Computed example of a mutant assay.
Amino acid sequence: MLNINATQVTSENFSKYGTYYNMKNGTKDVISTEGEGFSDVRTTHPLIDTVGNLGFTLGSPLPAKIHTMERHLHTQEALFCLSDPFVITVAKSDENDYPSTESAEAFIVRPGEVVVLKKGVWHDACHGLKDEVYYYWMALEREEIVNEWIVIVPEPVLVDI
């Protein structure tokens, strides 16, 4: 089994998997505005490239032994961190019909940060740093589209911080 430690997500280290937004400290793709009694930050472009469903998931704590991953060939998926950090584990999309152990990477996403996975990126459910964690996601989901969880080859990945 391959052991990997999660690293803090940045625009640079996440770029091969998708887009990173920092809604608190700003990135090049967000706009901040202020009004009486509020401040607001929004993305400069639509978050995903299709209409999307909103989901709410409870992820288990680290360390996590990851045996399977899923991918979406029909939609991007945005993951939102609101109050507690989470870890997203991803693996490269290539010509394989399975996620590979050697390409697995894990990223810590903190409150106010959003990551948007490109279509076809293998990923696991998110995990809390020490405890279970709730997080929101947005992707196009339809009953007729089955998301298969595929075994990581050649072996599972153990993710921790």
Score class of each variant (00 low, 15 high):
L82W: 09
T27I: 04
E70C: 05
G35K: 08
N96M: 03
L129E: 10
W137V: 01
A64W: 02
S60C: 05
D131F: 02
T19W: 08
C81D: 03
V116H: 11
V151Q: 12
F86R: 05
E70T: 10
E113Q: 15
N147C: 10
F14D: 03
G52R: 00
H123Y: 07
Y136W: 11
N13R: 08
S60H: 13
T33L: 10
M138C: 14
N25F: 05
N53R: 14
Y136E: 09
A64S: 15
V151S: 13
L117H: 10
L58Y: 08
I88C: 09
I66E: 14
S83T: 15
N96D: 13
N13F: 11
G35R: 08
I48S: 01
D84C: 03
T27Q: 02
E36W: 06
L58C: 12
K16V: 12
E70K: 07
V87N: 08
H67S: 13
S15I: 08
N13G: 09
E105F: 08
M138R: 04
A139M: 11
A104N: 04
G120E: 10
P63E: 04
I88H: 10
V146T: 14
D97G: 13
I66A: 06
S11H: 08
V116M: 11
E70Q: 12
K65T: 15
E144M: 02
Y17W: 14
G112L: 03
E36L: 12
V109T: 05
I31Q: 12
V116W: 13
V115E: 01
Y20F: 15
H45F: 12
K118T: 05
S103Q: 00
Y21H: 14
E143V: 06
D40P: 00
E143M: 06
F14I: 05
L62K: 01
H45G: 02
G37R: 05
S39C: 10
G128E: 07
A91H: 01
H127E: 07
G35N: 09
T19Y: 11
K16T: 14
V146D: 14
S39Y: 11
N147H: 10
V114D: 09
P63G: 07
E105P: 06
S100W: 03
S32Y: 11
Y135C: 02
A106C: 07
T43Y: 07
S15Y: 01
V51T: 14
E70V: 02
S11P: 07
G59E: 03
S39K: 14
R42F: 15
Y136I: 05
V30A: 07
R110L: 02
E95H: 02
I108W: 10
N22R: 03
D29H: 13
F56L: 15
V114F: 11
I145Q: 12
A139F: 05
T101G: 06
T43L: 06
D49P: 04
E36V: 11
C81N: 04
R42H: 13
G35F: 09
W137I: 00
I88Y: 07
G52V: 02
E113K: 03
T50R: 12
Y98G: 06
V121S: 06
P99L: 00
T10L: 10
L58S: 09
Q76L: 05
E144T: 05
Y20S: 04
R71W: 12
S15Q: 15
H123P: 09
E12T: 13
S39V: 13
T43R: 08
N53H: 12
